[in-house]
Amino acid sequence: MSDQVVTAHNGFERLLGRLGRKALGAVSWLGDMASVTGSSLALIFAPPWQGRHFVLQLYALGVGSFVIIAITGAFTGMVLSLQGYYTLAKFGSESLLGSAVALSIIRELGPVLGALMLVGRAGSSITAEIGIMRVTEQLDALQMMAVNPQARIILPRIVATTIALPLLVSMFDIIGLAAGYVVGVELLGVNAGAFTGEMIAKVLPEDLYAGWTKALAFGALVGSVCTYIGYRAVPTTEGVARATTQAVVIGSVGILMLDYVLTSFFL
């Protein structure tokens, strides 16, 4: 009897211990990420200027993600319009469809879905690329050639995702609104004037600022998480594979968590 109590007690202690270690691990992981990201960003003003590499990364990560963002935006707008129409029609308020679609896209879905697509498309490739550079000692080779990999590899990628995402999200928004308009007005027969009128009347500058701030924050998050995980990848082929998966998972969960924080901040 007392033996059982002791075991249960020990089990609980072990669980607590494991929980504590996990929490400490997470904190030190975040601390290390902040230090790698921070020291990389600090190099933005240090010579040599990496302009050419910003442009190349903006091309690879930003332009390269446009098609997937456009497709996601179009279908998001279409389904919102369709779904919203049948819900609003129950209350005879189809005229509100334009504002419902616009606010959902601009405040939430544009930034969040855009960022999730960026993690999947560009983030995973950032992690895999840097991880492979780690395995094949290319990062060490840069060091030996007196080129700081944090300035050359990490910094341009974080800057590129941070700049690219707000641009991509704005394109996502407009494509989504246009697609929503086509479904709402052309297919479901909502009055065109009511759709655009409501949309313009209900979208306030605050909504746009909220969307853009989110996009900027998510872009920075995707860039720093994915570069960091690649940079710290275990230098084996398996390590890179695991890092790539981890980057997408942590990046996506991070986006949703940050979205909640920012939304509660903006309401």
């Binding site: 492979i132 094949t136 000692e137 290319q138 060490d140 080779a141 840069l142 030996m144």
Partner: peptide, 11 residues
């Protein structure tokens, strides 16, 4: 200068 085990050329 350094010559790495797997060459480490920038691919």
């Amino acid at each position: 200068g350094m010559v790495f085990q797997y060459s480490a050329l920038l691919n």
